Computed example of a mutant assay.
Amino acid sequence: MPDVTAVPSAVPGAVPTAVPSGLLADVVRFSWVDGPGNRYVVFLQGCNLDCLACHNPHTIPRATPRARAVTVEETVADIRTYAPFLSGITVSGGEATLQAPFVAALFEALRDDAATSSLTRLVDSNGCASDEVWDLLLPLSDGVMLDLKALDVDVHRELTGSDNTPVLRSMDRLAHEDKLTEVRLLVVPGHNDGEDRLRRTGDYLATHAPGVPVKVIGFRPHGVRAAARRVPAPTDDRRAEYGRRIAARVGAELVTVV
């Protein structure tokens, strides 16, 4: 196993140092919730946000004893084994764009391998990435699923510890280049679920990401850190109401509620 990894840059949004391996948190070889169809999901270690409601908090640190270095070659070999049963590959995290050179090399290898070339290649991202990162990834990607934690900058800081300016900038670019596959809204009661906030979020998406599917996700406490366990999970009726408020702005045919 290699003794070097694609260590995330200390500068938020910058392209990390290019090295021949990635730092892996885990893989899920068959998933129906990380993009369309049956997907192989690569969860990379390290994130540039510190989300209160994160459902994979163990992937936030830049390195942990659980994470391991993997090469592009061994990752492709494992994917090749399951390729006949897959629709595509999703690279998630953590934050996939922090290891952009590894993701780019992986997607290029998957594209060029006859056994995996038909699989779609998606990035699941929080959007905190620079144009330099997107310049590297977009030519090799079929699309990006973007998490919008909050439209309001103060609420975004409250939920993630960071500004949302790079997220909105990424959304605009991805939508313009027809690479925005889905916008994901995690609605956290007491934080970003106010009627006016949902209305303004829907209006923003209708303007900046017209025609893009929106997945409205009601907060659930499973797997979150202790600080988030005090947040009540919305009822089914409440989640449905979140969806209706977004759908009223972007179109019901574009909205899925989970």
Rank of each mutant, 00 (worst) to 15 (best):
L52F: 06
D3M: 10
P84S: 15
R68G: 07
V4E: 10
T160G: 13
L119N: 09
R249P: 03
V11W: 10
L98E: 02
P213D: 02
G202L: 08
D236N: 07
R68S: 08
G194W: 00
S162G: 05
A100F: 11
V214F: 02
D154N: 12
R111M: 04
W134T: 00
R249N: 10
R225Y: 01
A114I: 12
V33T: 14
H58G: 05
V258Q: 15
P61A: 13
A129F: 13
P8I: 11
E195I: 13
G46Y: 09
R68I: 11
P101M: 05
Y242A: 11
R62K: 15
R157Q: 01
P189R: 06
A252D: 14
R230Q: 14
D112H: 12
V212P: 14
G190S: 14
A63I: 12
A150F: 07
G22I: 01
D152F: 02
I246P: 07
I79V: 14
R239P: 04
G46Q: 01
D152T: 06
V33P: 03
A228F: 01
A252L: 10
I79A: 05
M1S: 12
D154V: 09
V123C: 05
G161Q: 08
P2Q: 13
V133A: 00
R173K: 13
R199Q: 12
